[in-house]
Amino acid sequence: MTATRRAAVLGSPIAHSLSPQLHTAGYRALGLDDWSYDRFEIDEAALPGFFARLGPEWAGLSLTMPLKRAVIPLLDEITDTAASVEAVNTVVFRPDGRKVGDNTDIPGLVAALHERGVEKAESAAILGAGATASSALAALARICTGEVTVYVRSERRADEMRQWGERLGVEVRPADWTDAVRAFEAPLVISTTPAGGTDSLAGQVPAHVGTLFDVLYEPWPTPLAAAWQQRGGQVLSGLDLLVHQAVFQFRQFTGDPRSPLAAMREAAQLG
């Protein structure tokens, strides 16, 4: 059957994206045979032209770097969640033609933690202060009742995280990266660094640890995640975030309230 409804992921680079496998697995699991999901290599300069060529068969788009902020001027509306971090990873095309931007990374991170039994945290720590750190902070605004310590490498990053904390209503305490091993004292640690960023800390994981959410998934496990598991701590990976945020996208694109979480997770694990 020819697909009558379309969705896709856009970004640059995009060849590594698992989103087509996840969404397609969701369609198949729930019998949505008239849906298709593709990937397109699109940078910031090409984005307006791509939008201009989209027809009525399009239901939604997933966005990755470097498009999460570049897309905002092209939209009719963004949700409060997306506005809170000035980043859109989901665009939904409404029946009336309006283009609405959302951010499913934030509820996806919260849902992944809830699935593992982490519904509240008295305090938390974030390793790193890049773009993903602001989404992690927004997620912690929903579940953390106390202070969030953010370990950063520069005073500029410290100032940025203080500002995000004020904006999101989170008590943020910046700390120098040289003290990052202190993060492991927190009941919940979210690592947002690029690959290799926490490798030097792996040998300093203490005997008793809480939950680590390492947003990387390739290569996996990271040395930090492996050391954490050896200490008996609970570990979540970037795949947990990927599948949960994709479920939120799937529901918005299709309007189907069912959850293809199991099918998406299997597809993610198969790569």
Rank of each mutant, 00 (worst) to 15 (best):
M1E: 14
T2R: 11
T2I: 14
A8H: 04
L10I: 06
I14E: 05
H16K: 06
L18A: 07
A25Y: 05
Y27Q: 00
A29K: 04
L30W: 13
G31A: 12
D34L: 14
Y37K: 05
F40G: 04
A45T: 07
G55I: 06
E57F: 00
A59D: 06
M65I: 04
K68S: 05
V71K: 13
D76H: 00
D76R: 00
E77R: 06
T81F: 02
A82Q: 08
A82L: 09
S84R: 13
E86P: 03
V88M: 08
V88W: 06
N89K: 07
F93A: 08
P95M: 06
D96E: 09
G97H: 13
G101D: 02
G101F: 15
T104W: 03
G108Y: 03
L109Q: 15
G117M: 11
A121W: 01
A124P: 10
A125P: 15
L127H: 06
L127W: 12
A129S: 11
S134V: 11
L137P: 11
L137C: 11
A139V: 10
L140N: 02
C144K: 07
V150Y: 14
R153H: 15
E155W: 05
R156M: 11
R157A: 09
Q163A: 14
E166V: 01
V170N: 09
P174K: 13
A175K: 07
T178F: 12
T178C: 08
A180C: 10
V181P: 00
A186W: 01
P187Y: 08
I190Y: 13
P194R: 07
T198H: 14
T198L: 08
D199R: 11
D199P: 10
G203S: 14
P206T: 14
A207S: 09
T211R: 03
L212V: 06
Y217V: 00
T222L: 12
L224N: 10
A226V: 02
A226T: 00
R231L: 11
G232Y: 14
V235F: 01
L236V: 01
L242S: 04
V247S: 10
Q252A: 09
P257V: 15
A262L: 05
A262Y: 03
M264D: 09
